[in-house]
Design a protein around this nucleic acid. Structure first.
Lengths: 329, 329
DNA sequence: CTGAAAGCGCTTACAG
DNA sequence: CTGAAAGCGCTTACAG
């Protein structure tokens, strides 16, 4: 910029005015400056700009896995809102490892992002307190923060689970299994809670062999489902805890001889084209992301209301697999 | 940092040494500095650091759509390589709009990212020449750069298309349709070229009614496929140009009375569970992303070899839909 | 082992 | 309409 000023024979401030489109420059001066910029190939360095101005015009997104079909529309929605607010987006995957979430979030804070949208992997977010105190707005999405008060945008997981299980019960099922993600993951806990509540509300006992929490690795899900689906007390229906589990369950059930009803949490592409179509409780990941990001930018615009929790509903989409009757076998 | 130095009764440089873990500080001094950091809640500002050091330890990724199931594993792979190299990732979607690609890429350059991985939407990348000259490493992925020489990591699209079409011909098909993305998208052009080459190599004429290029909107794909599949010269097989087209084609064909064979470019989740399973030419998006990002970091490490083009193979996965015989109807 | 000075490339606040 | 000075928060190069 100094070189541009020298070449154009003007002061630094005048170059700054031209670069930023500020008023108070004659057309003649402006064209001299522009010519110098062109000749020198000048490109403004935003790092320097950021150092002087307060905001960096960037936000950070930390989630489990950028490639997951549930989280990728959420990411895209956050990105769109960021763009609409003139911000760039840093994105990073925690891979469900708490230390990685913390490392990523703190690295982003050191870059002085204006705000953070986090799908937590950690169960203790006190590490963020100094950052939040220093003014970095933070909104949690899909799962709430732990051990701090913070904004959160969630799906009504327990409610959705109750709907799913009540639907299976209404179709005659009594022995209903649940396979979900690892306990301590908020969504997994909420969904198993909804499952238990719905069973209890209908006077049905839950046998602990029918409940399996522990990660979404296909081998694990396959083994657990095959175990639940065999023996004299075999389940006649499964409520699967998320899209990763559902996909494996569909695969296992397609090889199975006796029909087992299935309702999955989370919708997924082509669910309607399978035979039977897969009945799901659909979340709206793009809406989760959009809502969280919009809340973040309201905070950045000065909204200082107490931390709020927004809860979006899940929606039952019957497609066949959840309407299979409970045959006595 | 000034405050920390004052409180600890040391110089600025000593604080800097402690914060960066540099040697040459006595244990006693260090603990005084750490106490001051703790008491003041000091957090280093990386913007200032970046301004002094050359590198920003960040790279940018510009692609069509973060939420697309083809691009999201690619993003994740780029992110992993960035992390392994100590870099943070900016991610942005161009939505296939050239101006948006340019705007994003230039915004990233103004932030002085060390490098850029781009899935191009634009057909003229000369706008990047000053940036590349200024030292921003750039690698194109999935599609090559236009009008500049640059590194590119691609799938062998024409070869994959030839394999797909030859496969259909081997199963007795002569009237084979192609529905692809908009012309001028490199991958779409390459795939239609492979289609034409394979047809010609087998002495088959291509009727222009069987070829449709123009975006992946479901309504468009549906209308084109229904047109091709009707009348006396109806196609008996379809080669679909990407995963978005394939998904709609599967949906349309599932409502269709006469069986039409299908081979799709790009694999997708649950393709094996549909009836029939969907035969595809599988790309490896994670490997594309990883290869591109690794090449980028080699460039950042000083590799100054001429721009190179890496081409990864596509792989035919027969699952049933591509092996349907050509019935005479 | 430690620190004072200069400077990275901008913007802010002010004066003319 | 225009510009000189100070400063954002660090690191570099140097001296002690």
């Amino acid at each position: 910029m100094k070189d541009v000023a020298a070449r154009a024979g003007v002061g630094l401030k005048t170059v700054s005015r031209v670069v930023n489109g500020e008023p108070g420059v004659t057309a003649d001066t402006e064209s001299r400056v522009r010519a110098a910029i062109e000749a020198l190939g000048f490109r403004r360095n935003d790092s320097a700009r950021i150092l002087r101005k307060g905001r960096t015009a960037s936000i950070g997104l930390v989630l489990e896995d950028l490639a997951d079909p549930f989280y990728s529309p959420l990411s895209r929605a956050v990105e769109e809102v960021a763009r609409a607010n003139g911000s760039l987006l840093f994105a990073g995957s925690s891979a469900e490892v708490p230390e990685r979430e913390e490392e990523l979030a703190l690295a982003l804070c050191a870059r002085r992002v204006d705000g953070l949208v986090i799908v937590p992997a950690s169960d203790d977010h006190r590490y963020l307190e100094p950052e939040i105190a220093a003014g970095i707005a933070t909104v949690f999405v899909d799962r709430p923060a732990s051990r701090i008060e913070a904004d959160a945008v969630l799906t009504d997981n327990a409610g959705g689970a109750r709907t799913a299980v009540a639907h299976l019960i209404a179709h005659g099922h009594r022995r209903i299994g649940f396979i979900g993600d690892r306990p301590h993951i908020h969504t997994a806990d909420e969904r198993v809670r909804g499952y238990r509540e719905a069973m209890a509300a209908h006077g049905l006992a839950v046998r602990e062999e029918w409940v399996s929490m522990g990660g979404t690795a296909p081998e694990r899900v396959r083994a657990e489902l095959e175990r639940m689906a065999s023996g004299p007390e075999a389940i006649t229906a499964l409520f699967s805890g998320n899209n990763r589990v559902t996909v494996t369950a569909v695969r296992v059930l397609s090889e199975h001889d006796r029909p087992i009803a299935l309702v999955g949490f989370d919708d997924f592409e082509l669910a309607d084209l399978l035979r039977p179509g897969v009945t799901v409780i659909a979340q709206d990941p793009a809406r989760l992301g959009r809502t969280a990001a919009e809340l973040l930018f309201r905070r950045l615009d000065g909204d200082t209301a107490p931390p709020q929790r927004v809860e979006l509903p899940g929606r039952l989409i019957p497609r066949g697999s959840g309407e299979l009757p409970a045959l006595q076998h």
